[in-house]
Write a protein that binds this DNA or RNA. Structure first.
Lengths: 236, 236
DNA sequence: GCCGAACCGTAACGTACGGTACGGCAAGCC
DNA sequence: GGCTTGCCGTACCGTACGTTACGGTTCGGC
């Protein structure tokens, strides 16, 4: 590229073609993104291109060639992490109250573990920092959308079939799956995420998470469990 | 936990004595902080000292003299806003189910209005951005603590007496006021705050807020309303 | 061996911004 | 008047960091 603004359009190959997140990456690129991710967790949003290059043992020129600019690197990093978190959907076949309860507790427990993890906190922090008002001309505030899409909305997408299977089998009673999901979400997460994001110490032990998951599940069943079956509250 | 605003003497160095109520501020200083607040809402965290000075029609030198440094200005701004938000506590006397329900709905509605306001979102964004890992040598992460103290914890402090009055009068049944509060918090806020912080459009109309407040209140009463009227067998 | 592509390491550039210094001006006080 | 105080406006400095440029090295293909 001696002289001419040959590829000034700075987003040809960097963009990471929307769907196959993580698919079109070479091993080396994944390693670089892992380094960036680690740095993001350690240093927060003020990680520098130089630091990423040094940590990943690659040159800044390579970073810019692969990811376009700092935002591109950040976006790719967030998407890369998101692509690693994909969880297997739960099959809602032959559902009885016990297995439904177990599924809900599992979802609650997994979700609490996710939102209290260092990685999630760091990612949410950077995404929130980038979601300022009218930032950039057009799209580019992808970070918040990506995090949301792979966090809260992915959870809803996986949980709703379970809820609807429960309704189908007469175990649950609700009018709108979306509303029911949000109730469950609120009962599980409560104030945990905002407190952690704001820097509140709040160590969630394995035991505490298990207890909270059971409590949230029982509360949800108390609200939306079908009245026809047994639903005794149990110690939690 | 988090008893009072744990001030490091770092920020006391420069003006802003540890009155977090914004009492010791001159009118001019309040005007400057209002300008900073407006700018914070408009521009997010990347507001500059120069921009604040220009907006407030004051010199940068004055900003530094009054607030020490950028963080001091940010902290003072957050505290200034917090001091304006103080809400009158609800008196929980002669409580019957109707007035309890009304109180809870009021709390829920107020809280939803707060967390969906531009100001709250901007403040939480900047506080979260400042709550990174091991930022600075000492204290300095005050922002998150301040926001938490004047948001979620202030809400708890005002709501708990109402809950306990409800229990006293046999209207509510719960073991731990803190846990009960967190349940109510979760039922009210659900995913609203995190979605807004991450940039999700999510217009909350007055009507929607009212509906959500009523729903959350009914759900809370379903979970913690006394089943047998004002003569429950439980003694503590 | 030669060539080109990809990449590393690092120096260099440009700029934005936090922080400081200085001149000017108005008000109060002697 | 002259001195002091407090503030505005602005020029200035230092640095951090995003971004670019360039020389050097490795590696695959012929």
């Amino acid at each position: 590229m001696t002289g001419g603004p040959a590829f000034r359009e700075k987003s040809v190959l960097h963009i990471v073609p929307d769907i196959d997140t993580g698919e079109a990456l070479t091993e080396r690129q994944k390693a670089v993104l892992d380094a960036a991710l680690r740095l993001l967790v350690e240093e927060g949003d003020q990680l520098t291109m130089t630091a990423v290059a040094r940590r990943a043992s690659c040159s800044k020129e390579t970073l810019y060639k692969w990811f376009g600019d700092r935002d591109g690197l950040l976006t790719a990093t967030v998407q890369w992490q998101a692509s690693k978190v994909r969880v297997a959907p739960v099959d809602g076949k032959g559902l009885d109250l016990a297995s439904l309860t177990a599924s809900l507790e599992r979802f609650a427990s997994d979700w609490l573990k996710v939102i209290s993890s260092d990685t999630s906190i760091a990612l949410n922090r950077v995404a929130i920092g980038h979601a300022g008002p009218i930032r950039r001309k057009e799209g580019k505030d992808n970070l918040g959308a990506v995090v949301l899409e792979n966090g809260r909305f992915a959870l809803a997408k996986r949980l709703k079939p379970v809820l609807e299977a429960g309704r189908q089998n007469g175990l649950l009673d609700f009018a709108d799956a979306e509303t029911a999901f949000r109730t469950f979400f609120g009962l599980v997460a409560r104030d945990v995420q905002i407190r952690l994001l704001l820097g509140d110490r709040l160590e969630l032990t394995e035991a505490a998470i298990g207890g909270d998951a059971a409590r949230a599940t029982q509360q949800f069943l108390a609200l939306h469990g079908a009245k026809t079956g047994p639903q005794g509250p149990r110690a939690g």
